[in-house]
Write a protein that binds this DNA or RNA. Structure first.
Lengths: 337, 337
DNA sequence: TGGAATTACGAAAACGTATTCGAAACAAGT
DNA sequence: ACTTGTTTCGAATACGTTTTCGTAATTCCA
């Protein structure tokens, strides 16, 4: 490996001068800078990141927390889209991405310790249990953090607007005449909380009374829970005319159950999903669903993270809300009375 | 940050002794080792990875090449499953994962240069254009490499057995009486090559003549190409009785077209997919498809990579073939003649 | 008891870079 | 001519480890 010393020897200047020239320190004559850079290129010089980090205490490296418990993490399209765009945005800014976990060369450590060991300039937190102690420790530490779909005080976050999405889907149903709306929700996370808020708000705004028996607890990303919940709703003495599913994938289970009962969509029952994954638009009928702009969420989150990394004093914490959009498919019909 | 020097002061021994004690060098009395480790823990000592790498030229960090051109990378479930299990396997061995790209602090560099800069101990190559020069450069460099679904001489690789999968699917159709089989394939990659080999081999083994008009070029992971190709096949004067799609997702496009024409599956036409993604088992009818063991592919590839990293002399290059399995759904019917 | 072997530790150098501070050279202003 | 200022560079130090080699102390064996 060719080092700064080799270049300094080849150029007949000191290592200090070479370092300054390569980093445009401003202290070196233009002529010398040109020469040093030329020789460096010729000799295929590559800086040593370890030496550089040791000296500057920065790495141009951002950590990512992605835990895939119950396969709702990396494996879920929503998060893989986020990760992918986050990766692209980071690369565009010259940052690399490293996964953060609780294992360090065999030893169990906290997330924070892992970050400190690797000297991540900042870290992106997504798809974890935000209520856990290790996550809290990290969030409240000195290392710059941006969270996704969860917000802490004094920490920037990027969130899919779940209140909006749920509200708009509900409003869409109501505007087509539906008043008996079954609502299947996922695990009781903060995301589910917001979805509920949006749902109830829409009902209230349009003067429709919420009915307890129409609210069913299911699971995210789990077709069989969609099947079960659908079953429950349809067995009610006064079943709903429309069913909202917690996500597109869970809907698939519901769809199977509806088909099994000989009901056709949307003639006999209207349905909506959530996420707007590619699959939903290929189904027949195409699913009416809420598209979360995962790509933008990933992009915005690392943009904000890098901004706080590079302007530690001036950059204010910010709650960034990313709007989604209604994918209007053919799974909801206009109800005539 | 507490350093080795702080510990040495607290313990009344030299920094050298502390370092050796912490790393179980074997040179230090058990008593001292115990004391040093105890104090280190009490003071919340964390090694400095930069200093360590600078000295040892290793990082316990493995690079991953994942390029998502045409969204066939990270975003595709097959690859996100691989990435996820690779991540878990690496973490279990105390290695971290960093994405490798061609951007270094704003400057464009080769993949190899990026790896050298970050001092990756090894690199996993998946989902890239293996014919490109930058990939060749990396593969033929000094840094340990494992490739996924592509093999180079003298380099370890882990591959989904595409010949097997295609062969078994075809054989399955033949065993149920199908002889007129439409074969839609993806882009002409090495994967497609192997799928073709398996397909033709099965036809030959069972004495069925291959027909050119039944072979259609489509795209991977692209429902609309599934629609088009299906269209072509059904418009033939003598259409096939079964259609094989290049993957489950592309099949969705074909499914829509079949439905549009009023054909029901499998009564009027039999179909198979490829990949065995979760979605395929939720469809009605459940898709008969070939499940690629992505989880195992990710696991095996980093296991092999770490093995060659830690035994540079003794570890031989190896071509690891990972078998898949037939998911027998309800999308193929027995043909009576 | 004398020498050899073993054990336990430390001094010092090295990894490659960034940065502080001072010096030299020269220009500019009075 | 003397100060003052500016530009350009280099010597030296520091970042926190790991590792070699030497040495003192202890044990072993004949």
């Amino acid at each position: 490996m060719v080092t700064i010393k080799d270049i300094s020897r080849a150029c007949g200047v000191s290592p200090a001068t070479v370092s300054k020239a390569l980093n445009d320190y401003g202290d070196i004559s233009e002529e010398t800078v040109r020469m040093v850079k030329k020789v460096a290129k010729e000799m295929h010089y590559l800086p040593n990141s370890a030496a550089r980090s040791l000296k500057t205490n920065t790495t141009h490296n951002i950590g990512v927390l992605f835990v895939d418990e119950t396969s709702s993490g990396l494996t879920h399209q929503y998060f893989s889209l986020i990760l992918n765009s986050a990766k692209e945005e980071a690369e565009a800014h010259g940052y690399d991405i490293t996964f953060i976990c609780q294992n360090l060369g065999g030893r169990t450590v906290s997330f924070l310790e892992h970050c400190l060991y690797r000297k991540c300039d900042g870290v992106l937190i997504a798809s974890v249990n935000f209520d856990s102690e290790p996550v809290h420790e990290l969030v409240h530490s000195e290392v710059p953090v941006v969270t996704i779909d969860y917000s802490f005080d004094n920490v920037s976050s990027v969130m899919s607007d779940n209140v909006e999405g749920s509200y708009e889907l509900t409003r869409h149903l109501i505007s087509l005449g539906h008043e008996k709306i079954g609502f299947i929700h996922g695990e009781l996370t903060s995301v589910t909380n917001k979805r509920m808020r949006g749902f109830f708000k829409a009902l209230e705004d349009y003067g429709i009374e919420a009915r307890d028996d129409y609210i069913i607890q299911g699971h995210f990303n789990d077709p069989s829970s969609g099947t079960e919940a659908t079953d429950l709703l349809l067995d009610l003495p006064d079943p709903p005319t429309a069913i909202m599913y917690p996500d597109d994938f869970t809907y698939l289970g519901g769809m199977a159950e509806l088909r099994r009962r000989g009901l056709s969509i949307p003639e006999d029952i209207s349905v909506t999903g959530y996420d707007g994954i590619r699959l939903s638009q290929v189904l027949t009928p195409a699913l009416t669903t809420w598209h979360q702009d995962a790509e933008r969420i990933g992009r915005e989150s690392v943009r904000k993270l890098i901004e706080t990394i590079e302007n530690p004093r001036t950059c204010e914490p910010e709650q960034i809300m990313v709007s989604g959009s209604l994918y209007s498919g053919c799974s909801v019909r206009k109800l005539v009375n």
